[in-house]
Amino acid sequence: MAKIQHPFEDPAVKAVFASYPEPEQSSLLVIRDRIFRTAGQTAGVGNLLETLKWGQPAYLTPDTKSGSTLRLGLPKTGGYAIYVHCQTTIMSDFQQVFPSDFTYEGNRAIHFSTDNPPELSKLELLISRVLTYHL
């Protein structure tokens, strides 16, 4: 497993990351680190809870309830992905800003290839929006 910037509090979440193959594991750990960093730098988010939803690492704002659920995982088509709640406008709003910068799965996910890592500064905008969706 790659170097962890933010320690795992839930051993079940740590085990899921450990089960991911390389290089997807390292790529998802980079996004995980960016989620925690963005949460810490975004007003109104509060504490971030890392748990499992549908067997995938999920990030919630239980204290402030400022955000929607954000998940990380491995899509069946290969690569890795970041998922948002599909009944929100989060992904469609993001896609209007960056229409051709990412590979979108409808209004629920962005898929990434290990050959072409995401531009994290752009992805940080999505993360921030998810974590503040209810504000």
Rank of each mutant, 00 (worst) to 15 (best):
M1R: 07
A2C: 03
K3L: 12
I4S: 10
Q5T: 13
H6F: 15
P7V: 01
F8I: 07
E9M: 07
D10V: 05
V13A: 00
K14L: 01
K14Q: 14
F17Q: 02
F17T: 02
S19K: 03
Y20W: 07
Y20H: 05
P21C: 06
P21K: 05
E22N: 12
E22C: 04
E22G: 04
E22H: 07
P23N: 08
Q25S: 10
S26C: 00
S26F: 01
L28P: 10
L28Y: 03
L29C: 08
I31T: 07
I31A: 05
R32A: 07
R32D: 00
R34D: 11
I35W: 01
R37G: 04
T38K: 04
T38D: 07
A39W: 04
G40H: 05
Q41D: 14
Q41H: 01
T42Q: 05
T42K: 06
T42I: 09
A43D: 08
G44I: 00
G46P: 00
L48P: 00
E50S: 09
E50K: 03
G55V: 07
P57I: 02
A58T: 09
A58C: 11
Y59W: 06
L60A: 01
K65I: 00
G67C: 08
L70I: 10
L72N: 02
L72W: 03
G73Q: 03
P75K: 13
K76V: 10
K76R: 13
T77K: 14
G79M: 03
G79H: 12
A81L: 02
A81P: 11
I82Y: 03
I82E: 02
I82K: 09
I82V: 13
Y83W: 12
Y83I: 01
V84I: 10
V84W: 00
V84T: 06
H85V: 11
C86T: 07
Q87K: 15
Q87I: 13
I90G: 01
I90N: 05
M91Q: 10
S92E: 09
S92F: 04
D93L: 04
D93A: 11
Q95I: 08
Q95T: 06
Q95E: 15
Q96A: 09
V97F: 00
F98I: 05
P99V: 09
F102V: 04
T103I: 11
T103D: 14
G106I: 03
N107P: 00
R108S: 14
I110Y: 14
I110D: 12
F112R: 03
S113N: 15
N116A: 15
P117R: 14
P118T: 11
E119R: 14
S121T: 15
S121C: 12
S121M: 14
K122I: 09
E124S: 15
E124D: 15
L126V: 10
L126R: 08
L126Q: 13
L126T: 14
L126W: 11
I127Y: 08
S128G: 15
R129G: 03
R129Y: 10
T132P: 03
Y133R: 05
H134D: 06
H134R: 14
